[in-house]
Design a protein around this nucleic acid. Structure first.
Lengths: 147, 147
DNA sequence: TGCAGATAGGAGTATATACCCCTTTCTGCT
DNA sequence: AGCAGAAAGGGGTATATACTCCTATCTGCA
């Protein structure tokens, strides 16, 4: 591959977001790889730890992920026993929760996640990174429901 | 789905990037949908218009996309005749270029792209959006090759 | 000239993403 | 009690993403 070629400066908000996301996701995925987790899987486990247990759609809204997307991402986590699913009182609801295995996996991967986070923050700068996060949240808030 | 639930404020750079990217990508994809293009496809066509023609790996580096990813994204574009592929002098190289159909499709979709772009900028604010783009580019530059 | 090593790309596999359309289940109103 | 409409989710399809391992080709050097 022509590694000497620099990425282009796209004027497109979406393309630029995607480029940055790809690059950053790679870092996190590599950090989490020894623990058998992808970044999104880690996010799901971490979210479930906070929520305790939550129906699929609720969790999807929390993570700003499409419902069907989340369903497919949860699948492998259920398969390997990190996440449990049960029907709620409202039997339409598929309630997800962390299994003990899921919790310990999450905890064992936490240092790797922190290392990736630290690495990114050190490379861009702590303040700039925090500022960027603020702006990304503002963007998310601004465009949500605007479609 | 529990539409009343707000997205969570994740401390994770990667998760936050992904959330924002998903939300923004949806806007662009919807805008481009009448023209039968996804955001990434539009980016590829737009990039090819600028580059004239480029080997797959070169284009991938420009777009900060993994080579194999780009190959799979180019496939449908070739299939419907928007992009042409040919072997280069160096016969390992798969040289891509815009077909006349590709060019006219790109041009017809351009107003929709501009509308999406404008919509996002208006929702976050023009200056903030530009600042965000700067920071995203800085992030991309900072983490590139750092893995 | 010939070969070692580098480079471009292809194939297989797995997750990530989201659309549409459908079924199941529930809730509110009559 | 019964039905209309809303809500939660499942399944099909298609693109998006990237890793690993593999082949084909080229280039530089002996």
């Amino acid at each position: 591959m022509s590694a000497a070629v620099d990425p282009v400066e796209s004027p497109c908000v979406c393309a630029t977001l995607r480029m940055a996301t790809r690059a950053v996701a790679r870092i996190y995925d590599q950090a989490l790889e020894p623990f058998g987790l992808r970044t999104t899987q880690y996010s799901i486990l971490a979210r479930l730890e906070v929520e305790g247990s939550a129906p699929l759609g609720h969790l999807a809204a929390r993570l700003a992920i499409d419902r069907t997307t989340l369903a497919r991402e949860v699948e492998p986590l259920v398969r390997v026993g990190l996440v449990a699913e049960a029907r709620g009182e409202d039997r339409r609801r598929r309630v997800l929760s962390l299994t003990p295995d899921g919790l310990s996996r999450l905890e064992s991967a936490q240092p790797a996640w922190r290392a990736a986070q630290r690495s990114v923050k050190e490379q861009l700068g702590r303040e700039r990174t925090d500022g960027l996060l603020e702006e990304l949240r503002a963007l998310l808030g601004a465009v949500r429901g605007a479609s």
